[in-house]
Write a protein that binds this DNA or RNA. Structure first.
Lengths: 358, 358
DNA sequence: CTGTTAGCGCCTTCAT
DNA sequence: ATGAAGGCGCTAACAG
């Protein structure tokens, strides 16, 4: 059996309460006693039982981090930053462990993990990535979050819009991304280059991220006096998942529907790579024949050829901020909402269309 | 306060022991009683306290996953696979949570996290990535692992060689990568194309992964009757960290030392991207003037331009296997060691050298 | 400053 | 099949 507090106490010739006090350093203990206890701890290689401590003190060393998939750099970068921030033992309340949960974008998995984290009485939960819309899922999540919040779990949303109005009473800090603004600026960039027939490869239809980026794209079209709705615009929009092969397929479909396309905007960088591959496989050059743009500015984007024009989201900083918020180490932003700016990164994958008029 | 077992028991008109038995389903309970309890649980929205359960039953729902950095796709892919495997609630003992720990490759952080996980009485620990050699670190890790193993924590090494001989008594399953063989085949490929002056961008000098890949490279040189040691070979080897900028700098240095280089092998794909960038910035074409190769076959490698010749490691499968092993869901391989094959992926970034003699 | 005393919420023999 | 009771290892009042 593992050595317990009582063992240490016996060896040091003190009560277990004293050992506890030495270990937690939150109560005055005589120097000599402290030393004796410390020695006993070392001699016995004692390691506290976190579960017993958590139970007795009603605290937890765990922080949940919900992601679609840590293998996706978008989420990996956020998760990494959160982890780094919460594990900083030198900070107050620091030294928490990150429980990373891959939801795969499934609403059920999201709820299941929230229950599991409630079970562990997690100190905090960071939910990353766009929210799934519709079918009462938002309400279901809100209900779970309400329970968590009530039991003292700090909740932070990162890369997802705030909870819907009926749930605004729940104390949740939100680090949102300006997806709409970024998407608008990206399409404005293409329009200003002279592109008029722009294909759009959107993400899954039921995600807030997908919707906001698409809205930004269309807002830019509208601002330039172009149709931003109707069958003609729908025809130039294809939905798919947020992965490379989806981008490949979508690009082929777009080129089939509209061979005179001069530019394609992808839902994110990963999709954009698939688009690039398809465009090239069809014999077009980038950006000579067709410009391609992505979103997120993941690390590999600069190494794509041509280097990808995209919209940078400071994922690392956002994750770090979410980490600080969930630790209560940073004051929540006004109204609990901080919107992270996005930045247009113009690189080599976009250029004027052949015979462009800009 | 949160609702407890006792609350449920009271509402169902049974003892808390009965509720516990219903919840755990490991003991006969009358059907009618079961239903009544189940209803009470639902009515009260009861969620078990994992910490109390863990304390009483001496079990844990946590599995630690040590990685250098989850933001690095190499580790992200492994971590993702481990997480997916251990969280499968339908499997025996399933439904564990993954505690992801970024060690940043620091020996101290590695030990600290192992202590933290021991504190949580983790059910298992998966340590990923190459080991740090020297300075007694291996022994220190082994000591910690011995303690963990003794207290029932399952231990799995993934992507790292088995523990050193003195520690072989510790029950540890190892999923190792055939770094040496892969590196050898990669360099053989270059040699067979006709390359003779090959630069090598190695990783940090104190990592097993670095060493094995370098050994494989040199073994190939030796097998072709080329010098595989000595100042001339050292001159063509530059060490750096496993990141892009390190590859960039190293490539410049190699080209400075030996302008007649016809190929550069990088420690991994990320480094290779940096090498490619440097080579191009110096005005050379790939593979026309200089061939470049990486290692790992990370997802972005196929989208690099030219597509990267590299050595594929089935990271996903390896991670999944590690996950199953740490859950005790799969029998350990003979002698506790399974070596994962690596596969040479010849793509467009390598070709015959100009005026090659192959 | 230190020891004593209660639990924290649950599981698990032991009875019944 | 169910209940009663003790204890998992630790912390947090409360005394002294």
């Amino acid at each position: 059996m593992a050595v317990t507090l009582a063992d240490v106490a016996a060896r040091a010739g003190v009560s277990s309460a004293t050992v506890s006090r030495v270990l937690n350093g939150n109560y005055p203990v005589a120097g000599s006693t402290r030393e004796r206890v410390q020695r006993a701890v070392d001699d016995l290689d004692y390691v506290v039982n976190g579960q017993a401590r958590a139970l007795a003190a009603a605290t937890s060393d765990l922080v949940g981090v919900l992601v679609n998939d840590v293998a996706d750099p978008f989420f990996g970068l956020i998760a990494s930053a959160v982890q780094a921030e919460i594990s900083d033992g030198s900070a107050p309340g620091g030294g928490k462990l990150a429980v990373v949960c891959n939801t795969g974008g499934s609403p059920e998995a999201e709820l299941t993990y929230l229950t599991l984290l409630e079970r562990q009485r997690a100190a905090g939960v960071v939910i990353t990535g766009g929210a799934i819309e519709g079918a009462g899922h938002g309400a279901a999540v809100a209900a779970r979050l309400a329970r968590l919040a009530e039991s003292g779990t700090r909740i932070v949303l990162c890369g997802r819009p705030p909870l819907d109005p009926p749930a605004t009473a729940i104390p949740v800090a939100t680090v949102a991304f300006d997806n709409l603004g970024g998407a608008r600026r990206l399409t404005e960039h293409l329009l200003s280059l002279g592109h008029r027939r722009i294909g759009y490869v959107a993400g899954p239809a039921d995600r807030t991220t997908t919707r906001h980026r698409l809205e930004g794209h269309r807002a830019a079209l509208a601002a330039h006096g172009l149709p931003s709705g109707g069958p003609d615009v729908e025809r130039l929009t294809v939905h798919g998942s947020y992965d490379r092969s989806s981008g490949y397929d979508a690009a082929l479909e777009l080129l089939r529907r509209e061979p005179s396309l001069t530019a394609i905007v992808a839902a994110n960088d990963t999709v954009a790579l698939g688009v690039c591959a398809a465009v090239r496989d069809r014999g077009f050059s980038i950006p000579g024949d067709i410009s391609v743009a992505g979103f997120d500015d993941l690390p590999f984007s600069v190494d794509a050829t041509p280097a990808l024009t995209t919209v940078r989201i400071p994922l690392q900083e956002a994750g770090a901020r979410a980490g600080r918020l969930v630790m209560g180490r940073q004051a929540p932003p006004p109204c609990g909402l901080a919107t992270i700016r996005t930045e247009l990164m113009v690189r080599a994958s976009t250029a004027r269309p052949r015979g462009g008029t800009a």
